[in-house]
Design a protein around this nucleic acid. Structure first.
Lengths: 346, 346
DNA sequence: CTGAAAGCGCTAACAC
DNA sequence: GTGTTAGCGCTTTCAG
């Protein structure tokens, strides 16, 4: 099928079907209004011309772009966001199924010595009515975006709970980090480990505290000690490596549960240095089930967030939010699973 | 600053500045046409009202959305696309600097037993004039997208050479894979290795052949044998692992140069099984410098594609393509670099 | 159930 | 330099 120079318009279809433009519009947006015979005639004309409604014209009229905005921060090496790629793909798919596209945008370029503008990129998109809503993901940073968007009365949904804002009214979807750490810890307990260390982030991160709580409550529930068995560091491989070495020297844990794959990989580094075999000599569990966990030898057991489900729920919340009468659903908390690999298998 | 319920329009600004709508439009699009005093008065009104031109209205009028489309395939585990995240981020940044946003879309959902429609997603975007152009990335699949878009006379740029289509007229940006493999091989030669194996993809991939050629010509150039020193497998960790084991048994190479990080990680698996130390006993070089290469113990030396530069060149080509008189630049070939880590360091 | 008229917000062409 | 006119392609009234 060859496309003509200029895409067909409503008028072209109307001409060909021998009806008015209006009727074609109805055929698309309110097919029930048409007599079946007319409908099929219009449908044929649409197919024959390969007609698709002009996006801009429809957006101008309906004030809806069917676009959701997602801000991507610059690539950061050696650190978090290891699962961002998977999430973005899942979001794109879920959005397609709901008739949306994802508009990616960037913040301001970082300037040395200046704080990054938290709402950079959002305002222009909002005022130019280029997107219908936003998906906010980096809630772990303290999430000034959510507050900023709420203040601007912009529709948005968040991947991540509004930890610090009890008055938050926006829909959110999150994964139960405590449950994930509990899963990891129980898995290690089942494998016979008792001296299970927690390798976490420095205080101040609610996500980090949540995950740590899962380990702590599981250990305590079994009457096992936790004191001295934990370390808190930056979320980098190097930091995890150092902390793991210190813990091994101080208390000799037989297993590590970690707040991230990044830290878990740090543990693997230390084990490799000491010629300890992951899974055989010391067990390690990561968090996020990133690509790294999937391929790093010998395979890193990791808590897997159901990102596909997160995306579906986010889009569901979005559709509701943008629909005729928003249902004002509060939040959805999803359960992670455990991807078991050789790092916890003797 | 508090945003009003409805975003300000051109008319609002005109009223406030005491000029006509057209003058405001000129102030934005052709500031030179205004007398400085008028311009500054309009500018003040724009700032005061927080005015940003309505995207849909402008798009309808100018037939330009300032959006570039990028299709994302579903997440695939254990295989390629390891560097996609970095590329997307780079593309978003480069696009911002040129005044574009990136529209992400998905293909059709995969149906069991059916071939995926190569142009799924593209046609609708094209006919609805939702994007100005596309960026095509997965040229390694034989790239029916490029041909399809060319046939539809849709503006697009490709990350990847049009290997199989000498008549291709579209702009492209690519990274010299042969040069990358040469870099890797020379690095290993400098480290004293002579039995350097090539672990590549199965025949049929032009990218794979290109990379292999870099190894082959470097070895041959030094008068070193290559026969028996190579294997071709699927691009998976498991396949790389098996092929590495077979090569070690058959010819005992002291170093592996690989067509991808995925395969290199496969080699690392085999080394771990045999308690061989990467870098110390056997050297390994990957390709792509993915997150995995950066964090896998002890650190994987890898050929790094200059994705940020690729993104900049792609956007440059795009701007030219969409500009008033396209310059019809053919292609840009960029040089990779080598990220040296412990897997090649004794 | 179908058609005619109006207008979303903007910019390209032309007058003043 | 600035204002006026027209229209991009669509959907939302409102009549027939």
């Amino acid at each position: 099928m060859d496309l003509p120079r200029l895409p067909a318009t409503l008028a072209d279809v109307a001409d060909r079907a021998g009806v008015s433009r209006q009727t074609v519009s109805n055929a698309i947006n309110n097919p029930d209004l048409l007599r079946p015979e007319t409908l099929s005639r219009v449908q044929h004309a649409i197919d024959a011309l390969g007609y698709t409604p002009n996006h801009a014209a429809r957006q101008l009229r309906t004030r809806s772009s069917r676009l959701v905005g997602l801000r991507m921060s610059p690539a950061q090496e050696f650190t978090a966001n290891m699962a961002m790629d998977r999430f973005v793909r899942a979001l794109v798919e879920a959005s397609r199924d709901a008739g949306y596209h994802v508009l990616l945008f960037a913040g301001e370029p970082l300037v040395e010595g200046e704080l990054p503008a938290p709402m950079a990129g959002y305002d222009d998109l909002l005022r130019s009515t280029a997107v219908d809503a936003f998906v906010v993901t980096d809630t772990y940073l303290g999430n000034p975006q959510a507050a900023g968007l709420a203040e601007r009365r912009a529709p948005f949904v968040a991947f991540g709970r509004p930890w610090d804002d009890a008055g938050a009214r926006h829909p959110w979807v999150d994964v139960d980090g405590a449950a994930g750490a509990q899963l990891a810890t129980e898995h290690l307990l089942e494998r016979g480990h008792e001296r299970i260390a927690w390798l976490g982030w420095q205080p101040g991160s609610r996500i980090g505290e949540d995950r740590r709580a899962g380990w702590h409550r599981t250990m305590t529930g079994r009457g096992l000690p936790t004191s001295g068995l934990e370390a808190a560091t930056d979320d980098t491989v190097a930091a995890g490596r150092g902390a793991a070495a210190a813990l091994l020297d101080a208390v000799g844990p037989t297993a590590f549960a970690c707040a991230s794959d990044t830290l878990a990989v740090g543990v693997l580094h230390t084990l490799a240095e000491r010629r300890l075999r992951p899974g055989q000599d010391v067990a390690v569990v990561g968090f996020d089930d990133s690509q790294v966990a999937q391929v790093v030898p010998p395979g890193l057991t990791s808590v897997r967030q159901p990102l596909e489900q997160v995306a579906v729920e986010l889009v569901r919340a979005l559709s509701d939010l943008l629909g005729p009468r928003p249902h004002t659903s509060r939040g959805v908390l999803l359960e992670p699973t455990l991807a078991v690999r050789a790092s916890t298998t003797r």
